[in-house]
């Protein structure tokens, strides 16, 4: 534990390089002076605002990352148009739902990235994360009937699965796929709708 507070462990090379790169891009000049000042600023930032010692490399699978990025971009356009079509059809009003969706991963980074990706598209966002219960509460627009609700939950699960597939290990990805199928089935059969009061004492605020 004591090791974590040593300056040497705070200044991870990858983070340092990333911060210097951001600095260079901000200034748009790639010369020695920017490099020196960038390194200084990066060091100050890393020493003053240490990150948790546990880190994880999202670039482990660049190809999968690009695939998911493309999937997200396509989904972004699709959702934007669907959102627009829905408001126009409803004459400027909206029909929405707040649904609970099981979280497929148990790793903080993965959950946070997946929540971000889901929240990026118009018409959907993660309103509340119940971390210990492993549940997201997602606000979805364009929902009118029961089947629409199920469809929305499926969409969120699929998106989550894609993110887990891109950034987590293989075992975790297949476990997530299994959990997604299980969750969809339970949703269809209605088993999940009454069973959620079991851990009803948690009203956590993790984000």
């Amino acid at each position: 534990m004591a090791k974590r507070t040593l300056p040497g462990t705070r200044v991870a090379p990858s983070l340092l390089i990333w911060l210097v790169l951001v600095w260079l891009l901000l200034w748009g000049t790639f010369d020695v002076a920017s490099l020196v000042y960038g390194t200084l600023v990066a060091l100050v930032v890393l020493v003053l605002f240490p990150l948790p010692s546990h880190r994880w490399n999202i670039f482990r699978r660049p190809l999968r990352l690009v695939t998911v990025a493309l999937y997200v971009v396509v989904d972004l356009f699709g959702s934007a148009l669907r959102f627009l079509a829905d408001i126009v059809r409803n004459g400027g009003s909206v029909s929405a739902a707040i649904v609970h969706v099981p979280v497929l991963s148990d790793v903080d980074h993965v959950i946070a990235s997946a929540a971000n990706v889901v929240s990026l598209a118009p018409g959907k966002f993660v309103l509340q994360i119940d971390r210990p219960g492993g549940i997201w509460y997602v606000y979805v627009t364009g929902v009118h009937t029961g089947p629409d609700v199920d469809k929305a939950v499926d969409d969120v699960l699929d998106m989550q699965r894609a993110v887990v597939w891109a950034v987590a290990g293989d075992e975790e990805a297949s476990a997530a796929a299994g959990r997604a199928e299980e969750a969809k089935r339970r949703r269809r059969t209605g088993a999940d709708r009454s069973g959620e009061a079991d851990h009803g004492d948690q009203e956590r605020e993790d984000r």
Binding site: S95, A96, A97, I98, V99, Q128, H144, G200, E203
Partner: peptide, 23 residues
């Protein structure tokens, strides 16, 4: 949501409020 700035008439289902009530 917490401060009640939600138009409930727009919501078809609200599973979070069910949950909070159960809690």
């Amino acid at each position: 949501y917490r401060t009640g700035c939600v138009d409930r008439s727009t919501l078809v289902v609200d599973e979070l409020s069910q949950r909070l009530r159960a809690g």
